[in-house]
């Protein structure tokens, strides 16, 4: 069983990052066990030129299938989904993805706030939100909603982040349950996997 009982009921994980995100994600995904019983949904700000190399780059690092989230796709455990460039990624209450080309939020699309907020409303207290390195304020609102709906939050320790603005903003708002370096976050993900192994 996990040392952290709140994680026992987690059924989905969302991760947000921008500057420095690729390296951070590599580290997190490398250690993921094959039997991860929950989906991981990632929003990393990438170039908006329509080409998304991220699923490809990360698939090599990870023993789980990594794909770009597609419109209307059901969200399944043991899968890693990446938000497509230039679309907001939303989670519907019935745990399907939706995409939109609505206005940019916090100057970005896909917006971490949009993903985190809709995921929080769909998964409520069963959601774990993780915010990593990044150089703007996107994600703060989303982490706030996750917390307010009873979910769990982890923020990358800003002193270990390539860009510390994003993690610092969440900590300043007082909605970070835990502040951990990447190795600590990776351990947590492994723990969540073992929870269901018994």
């Amino acid at each position: 069983m996990s040392n952290i009982p709140e994680y026992n009921s987690i059924t989905a994980i969302v991760i947000g990052c921008s500057v420095g995100g690729l390296n951070a994600l590599r580290i997190l995904l490398q250690g993921l066990p094959r039997n991860l019983p929950v989906p991981i949904i990632i929003n990393a700000h990438v170039a908006a030129d329509g080409t998304n190399l991220l699923p490809h780059l990360l698939a090599n690092q990870c023993c789980l299938p990594v794909t770009e989230a597609r419109e209307r796709e059901p969200i399944l455990p043991g899968r890693v989904y990446i938000a497509p460039p230039n679309y907001h990624l939303l989670v519907e209450i019935d745990k399907h993805f939706a995409l939109s080309v609505d206005e940019h939020v916090c100057y970005v699309r896909p917006s971490i706030d949009v993903l985190f907020t809709t995921a929080a409303e769909a998964y409520r207290e069963h959601l774990l939100g993780i915010l990593l390195t990044g150089a703007n304020n996107d994600g703060t609102q989303g982490m706030h909603t996750i917390k307010a709906l009873g979910g769990q939050t982890i923020v990358q320790d800003p002193t270990t982040a390539e860009a510390d603005i994003m993690p610092k903003a969440v900590i300043a708002m007082g909605v970070a349950d835990r502040i951990l370096p990447l190795s600590g976050i990776a351990n947590t993900l492994r723990e969540i996997a073992t929870l269901y192994d018994t």
């Binding site: 519907e92 939706a98 939109s100 609505d102």
Partner: peptide
Amino acid sequence: YAKASIKRR
């Protein structure tokens, strides 16, 4: 309309 999005609108 897709729910999550119309709600935001």
